[in-house]
């Protein structure tokens, strides 16, 4: 393998990891801190993307302004949903799952009613840079930078601010935190809003490189959940490590064909064969199989395994 191929390969692995981190960060925050499974997270992602679409196409704002607006809009939506529905269901994890799934279906329906079911693109101005014989999109580097920035800010927020300390206290022991004068319902609400806002940011950042369509969240939600489940209880490090492991597998299998199976179809031109590996779809299959095998070995996820070892 020549040097430029290797560099491209590394960049593609980095891109897979970036996408998984972007998708899973908000979800991991909500799941890890509040222990609730939010199935509407994929639609928060979609709403973020549609905020960018609406603000650039219909309100004619610049792209960067739309991208800044998206997390705020989605965080507001998340807080509204927490106040209206999820607040009534704390302590009933299965019911939270069902209710947020209902919210997810309602949001898909409402977005389709408003914007139609067609896929729309968002134009942007960045080009490619060249690595030896290959061209690579500059925007992907921007995405990786933003993902790293988001992770760092979440870390700083929870580690060094008064809000972060109160939130962690609330998560560790809600009753004690409440007795110490922390407004715990407000903490839950803000944490949920923050998780929603992160999904909105992910949707906004990825909107220009994927087609914007009401069902786009569904395509990503499964991968986001798998990343969170494999990551385990430690929010940031768990997400980063599982995104790295899964992203590596996904990028490798997507890139390299493993073997081919000949079939009896009527192909033009004639040799009819299925290539296993070497497409984005097989990357996703490999990701799922790898995750299931990993969970058989480490039921608490990667970071749960570290915690046990300590």
């Amino acid at each position: 393998m020549s040097l430029d191929t290797a560099v491209i390969m590394v960049l593609e692995i980095l891109n897979s990891i970036t996408i998984l981190v972007l998708l899973a960060l908000g979800l991991a925050l909500i799941f890890g801190m509040m222990r609730i499974v939010n199935l509407a997270q994929g639609e928060f992602f979609t709403v973020g993307a549609f905020t960018v679409l609406a603000s650039t196409r219909y309100a004619h704002l610049p792209l960067w302004l739309g991208m800044l607006l998206a997390p705020l809009v989605v965080a507001g939506l998340g807080i509204a949903i927490e106040r209206a529905i999820i607040r009534r269901l704390y302590g009933r994890p299965l019911d939270v799952m069902l209710a947020t799934w209902g919210v997810s279906l309602l949001l898909i329906g409402l977005i389709t009613v408003t914007f139609g079911a067609v896929t729309q693109g968002i134009p942007f101005a960045l080009g490619n840079f060249s690595v030896g014989r290959y061209q690579y999109p500059e925007y992907r580097i921007v995405m990786t930078t933003v993902a790293a920035g988001l992770m760092l800010s979440v870390y700083l927020l929870f580690r060094y601010t008064a809000f972060g300390r109160r939130a962690r206290a609330t998560i560790a022991n809600p009753d004690m935190a409440s007795a110490a004068g922390i407004n715990t319902p407000r903490m839950f609400m803000l944490t949920f809003g923050l998780g929603a806002g992160l999904a909105g940011a992910a949707g906004a950042i990825m909107a220009p490189i994927v087609g914007v369509v009401p069902t786009m969240g569904v395509l990503y939600i499964a991968r986001a959940f798998i990343t969170v489940v494999v990551g385990g209880p430690i929010v940031l490090l768990g997400t980063l490590s599982s995104a790295s492991a899964l992203g590596l597998i996904e990028a490798l299998i997507s890139r390299f064909p493993l073997f081919t199976i000949a079939t009896a179809g009527h192909c033009t031109p004639p040799p009819c064969e299925i290539s296993i590996g070497g497409s984005a779809f097989f990357g996703q299959i490999a990701l799922l199989i790898f995750a299931i095998l990993l969970l058989r070995l480490l039921p608490q996820g990667i970071s749960g395994f570290w915690r046990q070892r300590q």
């Binding site: 529905i85 069902l98 209710a99 209902g102 919210v103 279906l105 898909i108 329906g109 409402l110 389709t112």
Partner: peptide, 18 residues
């Protein structure tokens, strides 16, 4: 009406849970 199945399902899920 075109999106009715999704909207009905979503509303039923939320409504029944609550």
């Amino acid at each position: 009406v075109r999106e009715a199945p999704l909207l009905v399902q979503g509303a039923v899920l939320v409504g029944v849970v609550l």
